[in-house]
Lab assay of single mutants.
Amino acid sequence: EVTIKANLIFANGSTQTAEFKGTFEKATSEAYAYADTLKKDNGEYTVDVADKGYTLNAKFAG
């Protein structure tokens, strides 16, 4: 089991951190699915991958 950390950075400057656990593939998929649920209210996002894929920095356009 691994933990994927998602740093969510919103256009207004606020941030949120979420963690997803499971296999690498499952946890990564859940992190992206969570970011997708936030698109409606926060706009499209881009992701910078860090820490060999164990940290995802998602920046929302607003």
Rank of each mutant, 00 (worst) to 15 (best):
Glu44Leu: 09
Asp41Trp: 13
Asp48Glu: 15
Ala6Asn: 02
Gly43Trp: 04
Thr17Met: 10
Asp48Trp: 13
Ala27Gly: 02
Ala6His: 01
Asn7Val: 15
Gly43Arg: 01
Tyr34His: 06
Ala50Ile: 12
Phe24Met: 10
Thr55Ser: 05
Thr3Trp: 07
Asn12Lys: 04
Val49Ala: 07
Asp51Gln: 04
Asp48Asn: 11
Ala27Phe: 03
Tyr34Phe: 12
Ala6Gly: 03
Val47Asp: 01
Leu56Asn: 02
Lys5Ser: 07
Thr55Asp: 03
Ala50Glu: 12
Ala18Ile: 15
Gly13Ile: 03
Ile4His: 02
Gly43Pro: 02
Ala50Arg: 12
Gly13Trp: 04
Tyr34Ile: 03
Lys39Thr: 11
Asn7Arg: 10
Tyr34Met: 06
Asn42Leu: 09
Gly53Lys: 03
Lys52Glu: 15
Ala35Cys: 15
Glu1Leu: 14
Ala61Gln: 13
Lys5Tyr: 10
Ala18Ser: 08
Lys39Arg: 12
Ala50Lys: 11
Glu30Ser: 09
Lys40Ala: 13
Phe20Ala: 00
Ala33Gln: 09
Thr15Asn: 07
Lys59Gln: 11
Asp48Cys: 15
Thr23Pro: 10
Thr3Gln: 05
Ala35Gln: 02
Thr17Asp: 04
Leu38Ala: 08
Ala11Val: 09
Ala18Leu: 15
Ala61Pro: 07
Thr46Ala: 08
Asn57His: 09
Leu8Ser: 02
Lys21Cys: 10
Phe24Cys: 07
Val47Cys: 06
Phe20Met: 00
Phe24Glu: 03
Gly13Tyr: 05
Gln16Arg: 13
Leu38Thr: 01
Tyr54Ile: 04
Asp41Val: 12
Gly22Asn: 05
Lys5Asn: 06
Thr28Ile: 13
Ser14Met: 13
Lys59Val: 14
Glu44Ile: 09
Lys26Cys: 12
Leu8Tyr: 15
Ala27Met: 02
Lys5Arg: 14
Tyr32Cys: 07
Ile4Met: 03
Gln16Ser: 11
Val47Pro: 03
Lys39Pro: 01
Thr3Met: 08
Thr46Ile: 11
Ala61Thr: 13
Asp51Lys: 03
Phe10His: 01
Ala58Asn: 03
Ala61Met: 14
Val49Cys: 08
Thr17Val: 13
Thr23Asn: 08
Glu19Tyr: 15
Leu56Cys: 05
Thr46Gln: 09
Asn7Pro: 02
Ala18Asn: 07
Asp51His: 04
Lys40Thr: 10
Asn7Glu: 04
Asp48Thr: 15
Glu44Trp: 09
Asp36Pro: 00
Glu19Leu: 14
Asn7Trp: 09
Ala18Thr: 11
Lys59Ile: 14
Thr55Pro: 00
Ala6Lys: 01
Thr46Asp: 07
Thr28Leu: 14
Lys40Ile: 12
Glu1Asn: 11
Glu19Arg: 09
Ala6Ile: 15
Gly43Asn: 02
Asn12Trp: 07
Ala27Cys: 05
Val49Lys: 07
Tyr34Lys: 03
Ala61Asn: 12
Lys5Ala: 06
Gln16Gly: 08
Tyr54Cys: 09
Phe10Val: 00
Glu44Thr: 10
Thr55Gly: 02
Ala35Thr: 07
Gly22Ile: 03
Thr37Cys: 14
Ala33Leu: 09
Gly53Glu: 04
Thr37Ile: 10
Tyr32Thr: 05
Thr15Arg: 12
Val47Asn: 01
Ala31Met: 07
Tyr54Ala: 05
Lys39Ile: 13
Asn7His: 12
Phe10Pro: 00
Asn7Leu: 11
Phe10Ile: 02
Thr28Asn: 05
Phe24Asn: 02
Glu1Met: 14
Gly62Asp: 07
Phe60Lys: 01
Ser29Val: 10
Gln16Asn: 08
Phe24Leu: 09
Ala33Pro: 00
Glu1Phe: 14
Asp36Lys: 05
Leu56Ala: 02
Ala33Asn: 08
Asp36Val: 05
Glu1Gly: 08
Tyr32Met: 09
Ala35Phe: 15
Ala33Asp: 07
Leu38Gln: 07
Ala18Gln: 12
Ala31Glu: 01
Ala6Trp: 07
Lys40Pro: 11
Glu25Gly: 08
Phe20Asn: 00
Phe24Gln: 05
Asn12Pro: 01
Asp41Gln: 12
Thr28His: 06
Ile9Phe: 14
Lys40His: 11
Asn42Thr: 03
Glu25Thr: 09
Asp36Thr: 05
Ile9Asn: 06
Ala50Pro: 03
Lys52Asn: 15
Thr46Trp: 09
Ala27Trp: 05
Gly22Asp: 04
Ala31Asn: 01
Val47Arg: 01
Phe10Arg: 03
Asp41Lys: 11
Gly53Ser: 04
Tyr45His: 02
Phe20Gln: 00
Gly13Ala: 05
Thr55Glu: 05
Asn12Glu: 05
Phe20Trp: 05
Ile9Ser: 08
Ala58Cys: 15
Ala35Asp: 00
Ser14Leu: 13
Tyr45Met: 04
Asp41Cys: 15
Ala11Ser: 10
Thr37His: 10
Lys26Ser: 13
Gly62Cys: 09
Glu30Asp: 14
Thr55Trp: 04
Lys5Gln: 08
Glu44Gly: 08
Glu44Cys: 14
Gly62Val: 07
Thr28Met: 13
Ile4Glu: 00
Ile9Trp: 10
Gln16Asp: 08
Phe60Met: 00
Thr15His: 10
Thr55Asn: 03
Phe60Ile: 02
Ala6Arg: 00
Thr23His: 06
Ala11Met: 09
Lys21Tyr: 13
Thr55Tyr: 04
Ala27Pro: 00
Phe20Ser: 00
